[in-house]
């Protein structure tokens, strides 16, 4: 097989196939990771002692435990408790748990940056605490959390490669399989690197656009 044919007929099709799996992992994990982050941030900021403590514990565990170890716990560890997850599901759950922990730190910072007087004012207007959080605090805080959260989203794209180590054949896995079969390690990993750079660059531009779109005109906070 010629060099060109190796790229066009073997490597690129394999990477595209793996790329689809990577995108599925990311697309499933990102929205739930954001929701988890919001929930934990609210619990940590506005919850009572117990809820706040639990959320803090969650953050300490999932930020301190390496993501790969977390994936091992979910994929290799849980079966000993009688819970067997398919590798893909274990990967998505791992990404959500980890992404949620990091997101929650940015969202908590944003929640705390909304002045306390707003909560008091909302309650004075007859809103319940929860209504004030949902309608007054969160809409402002989430916008302020966008830079941090989008950074985590870009990390998620890169961390999705770890799914390969629990047997999910995503982008990195596809490259590794082709590399080993044709003994073309440099070519395969250089090309898969370009794939990731493209993904990350597109995502960087996209979150920039999103941030501009969601900004309230004349209310940039700058």
């Amino acid at each position: 097989m010629t060099d060109a044919a190796f790229f066009t007929e073997v490597l690129i099709p394999a990477l595209l196939k793996g790329g689809v799996v990577s995108l599925q992992l990311i697309a499933l994990a990102a929205p739930f990771g954001l929701l988890a982050g919001i929930a934990i941030a609210i619990g940590r900021t506005y919850g009572g002692r117990v809820v706040s403590g639990l959320c803090h514990g969650y953050i300490i565990f999932f930020k301190g435990c390496p993501l790969l170890l977390l994936l091992f716990i979910l994929y290799f560890g849980l079966p000993s408790l009688g819970i067997t997850l398919p590798a893909f599901v274990a990967a998505v759950i791992g990404f959500i748990l980890c992404n949620g922990a990091y997101n929650s730190e940015y969202i908590r910072g944003a929640l705390l940056s909304v002045k306390e007087g707003q909560m008091i004012a909302a309650q004075a207007l007859g809103m319940s605490r929860w209504q004030a959080i949902r309608h007054i605090i969160l809409p402002q805080a989430l916008r302020r959390a966008i830079p941090g959260v989008s950074n985590e989203f870009i990390y998620l794209i890169k961390y999705s490669s770890l799914a390969y180590l629990i047997t999910v054949t995503e982008l990195t896995g596809a490259a590794k399989i082709v590399a080993a079969k044709y003994f073309a390690y440099f070519e395969a990993f250089a090309l898969v690197g370009i794939f990731y750079l493209i993904l990350v660059s597109i995502a960087t531009v996209a979150v920039g656009v999103l941030e501009k779109r969601l900004a309230i005109p004349g209310f940039s906070g700058k």
Binding site: S161, L162, L165, K176, F186, F189
Partner: peptide
């Protein structure tokens, strides 16, 4: 921009 794992593979098996 590159995942840690991809860099490790690239350097260990390639470069």
């Amino acid at each position: 921009g590159l995942p840690n794992l991809v860099l490790l593979f690239l350097f260990f098996f390639g470069i």
